[in-house]
């Protein structure tokens, strides 16, 4: 079981802001408290590929040290914004050896039992809302362990907006996690930096579930 960190994201319910002000760099976010969540690289020795373990033994991955996370309910919709530094953005896959920046919000489907570091296991699945720069449609990942992810289309009502500005990505996920209705939701954040060729299991992520508190 993954320990829960003390990081708590409290979703604001700001008054006087319309939904349009909650774009990636919208003014509405000023009313939501952003929390800096530390990230760490995914464990290399857990990668289910001897090639990946060997090829990356002397390379850095999971280079994003932290992400700034904020949440707000606006227009009746929960929005989670993730921001991280990306001085060399990769906004699209433009060549064989170019990898796009990406971000995911992860949710355990069994409360907090699933292991975040290994993307859950057969009995404790993890679901992720996944955005990849340059890919028109974000998608949902369901995993029961490393290397097991399957993709599905985003459920109706879930949307993603993203923008890179001044050395930073801001990605806003809008929609209701499956545990909606609860007062809080365990959530993880994962970031892939295309500049360092991060992909698949090579990412930076919160070392444990963080808590997303939802307004009543």
């Amino acid at each position: 079981m993954t320990a829960e960190t003390s990081v708590r994201i409290v979703a604001a319910r700001p008054a006087g802001h319309d939904a349009g002000s909650f774009g990636p760099f919208g003014s509405g976010w000023a009313a939501a408290e952003a929390v800096e969540a530390a990230l760490q690289p995914t464990p290399l020795d857990a990668q289910p590929s001897a090639y990946v373990q060997t090829a990356w033994a002397n390379r850095r991955h999971g280079v994003t040290p932290s992400a700034r996370v904020a949440a707000a309910v606006a227009g009746g919709v929960l929005r989670v914004r993730v921001q991280w530094a990306a001085s060399s953005p990769r906004p699209a896959i433009t060549d064989n050896n170019v990898f796009a920046d990406a971000c995911a919000l992860l949710f355990p489907l069994d409360g907090k039992q699933a292991e975040l570091m290994t993307m859950g296991d057969a009995d404790h699945p993890v679901r992720a809302w996944h955005w990849r720069a340059g890919t028109p449609d974000p998608f949902v990942l369901t995993a029961t362990g490393l290397g097991t992810t399957s993709r599905q289309a985003m459920p109706h009502g879930v949307a993603v907006e993203a923008e890179w500005h001044a050395g930073e990505w801001a990605v806003v996920f809008s929609g209701a996690p499956e545990a909606a209705g609860a007062s809080s939701v365990p959530m993880g954040v994962a970031i892939w930096q295309g500049a360092t060729e991060e992909r698949g299991g090579l990412a930076a992520h919160t070392p444990a579930w963080i808590t997303l508190e939802l307004p009543r």
Partner: peptide, 29 residues
């Protein structure tokens, strides 16, 4: 053997190696 998600497989009947395009996520390992 490099693919971390079993995106390729070898056919039992003739040893032909194929990419499962449903499983491939474009990691390019």
């Amino acid at each position: 053997e490099a693919c971390p998600r079993e995106g390729l497989y070898r056919r039992e009947e003739d040893g032909i190696i194929l990419i499962d395009e449903e499983r491939c996520h474009g990691y390019r390992f």
